[in-house]
């Protein structure tokens, strides 16, 4: 069985973002970019499944500007066998991403699609659910535990839901989206980084895949959130309780 893992290139988790003065978006030039943390978890899970002998190959996919190839290289250095890069300019919203993934899945025929539950840039949390809908595959979102049964061709997925954990059993092929506590992703070692340089990344264009981008969303503006006004420093627990009771009225 093959596992496909889409990965997204985003502003690094540790960078403090800056909104562009013209409000068209967030500054991304001269900013450190990395693989989306949830995508790292997805890739790690796929690699662990492969290493346990339940899958034969992990294919990493990325789409967008040319630099996505760097992110794919990171994925290959972590242990994916092959990469697929889809060249696309401009904003790619989740519906388009899901349609592109559907085409790639029709070509590659993986038994499992594992992806991050959301990207830490646009925070949409949509793509996995949408590609599952388009394919008619079952979905296990926000996974904190994944168990595969090769014989029965099912995946048992423990999901992080509001106020607890839910367990589902999904027939393969299926879509799984990863939550934070699923695993701790590995670091790419230097020998593996070197090895990744000779791994194959296949390139597609939207034209090759015959995917039409539907422009049904427009970004009007991006602005900074309102600043909180500076508060006061109190000197004792008694003063704090007094403020909370008589000024803020919250207790």
């Amino acid at each position: 069985m093959k596992i496909m893992v889409p990965i997204k290139r985003v502003i690094d988790y540790a960078v403090k973002i800056r909104v562009k003065p013209d409000k068209t978006g967030v500054e991304t030039s001269n900013v450190k970019m990395s693989m989306n943390p949830f995508c790292e978890i997805a890739l790690e899970e796929a690699l662990r499944i492969k290493e346990s002998g339940l899958a034969t190959e992990v294919v990493a996919v990325s789409m967008g500007p040319t630099q996505c190839v760097d992110t794919l290289r990171t994925g290959l250095a972590m242990g994916a066998e092959r990469g697929i890069y889809v060249e696309a300019k401009g904003d790619l919203f989740p519906l388009s991403v899901a349609k592109i993934l559907k085409k790639l899945i029709e070509i590659e025929k993986p038994g499992l699609l594992i992806l991050g539950k959301q990207a830490i840039d646009d925070d949409c949390n949509q793509t996995g659910q949408m590609v599952a809908g388009l394919l008619g595959w079952p979905q296990g979102t926000f996974a904190s535990k994944v168990l595969l049964d090769k014989e029965k061709q099912v995946a048992t997925v423990e999901r992080e839901v509001d106020g607890g954990l839910e367990t589902l059993c999904l027939d393969l092929p299926a879509v799984i989206t990863t939550d934070l506590r699923l695993n701790q992703p590995r670091y790419a070692t230097l020998p593996n980084i070197m090895k990744a340089k000779s791994k194959v990344i296949k390139k597609f264009t939207l034209l090759d895949l015959n995917v039409e981008i539907k422009p049904d969303l427009e970004i009007v503006e991006v602005r900074e959130p309102p600043k909180r006004k500076a508060g006061v420093i109190v000197s004792s627990v008694d003063e704090l309780i007094d403020k909370l009771r008589n000024e803020a009225h919250v207790i």
Binding site: I17, D122, I219, E221, V222
Partner: peptide, 13 residues
């Protein structure tokens, strides 16, 4: 977006 570090206005067309 960016976990609340920016606010994005979107229009559905």
């Amino acid at each position: 977006i960016y976990a609340g570090n920016a606010l994005c206005t979107v229009r559905y067309t």
